[in-house]
Amino acid sequence: MERKQLDVRGLKCPVPIVRAKKEIDVMKAGDLLEVFATDPGSVSDFQGWVKTSKLAALREQRTETDPAGKAIYVHVLERLA
C-alpha cells in the first residue's frame, strides 16, 4: 500500500480534480493520495467527484494553515478496487 502526495496549491479548478484523477487512475487498490490545495472550492469538488468516481473514495478532509496564514485544504483519497 502506497501513500502519495499531490501538490496543487495555487491552482484553480479543474486542475486539482484533473490531476488527482490522473494519479488515482494509475494507483493500486488501497493506495492513498493526499492532495494539498488552496482553492476553497476544492472541498465541495472532491466530495462531489468521489460520488461519481468508481475508483476513488474520500477518506479525510482537513484544513491546515501555511506559515503566511493562508488556508491549505487537504484531501485524502483512497484508490478503490
Binding site: 479543474p14 480534480i17 472550492g41 462531489g48 467527484w49 461519481t52
Partner: peptide, 29 residues
Amino acid sequence: RNEDEFETWRLEAQHPLGVLHIPYFNFLE
C-alpha cells in the same frame, strides 16, 4: 459547478433562463 455552489448562488436574468446542472467532474468521469 459543484452541488453546494450551485445551490447557494445562481446566475439570474430578467427573462428566465433554461438551466442544466452537471458538475464538471461528471464530464471527466
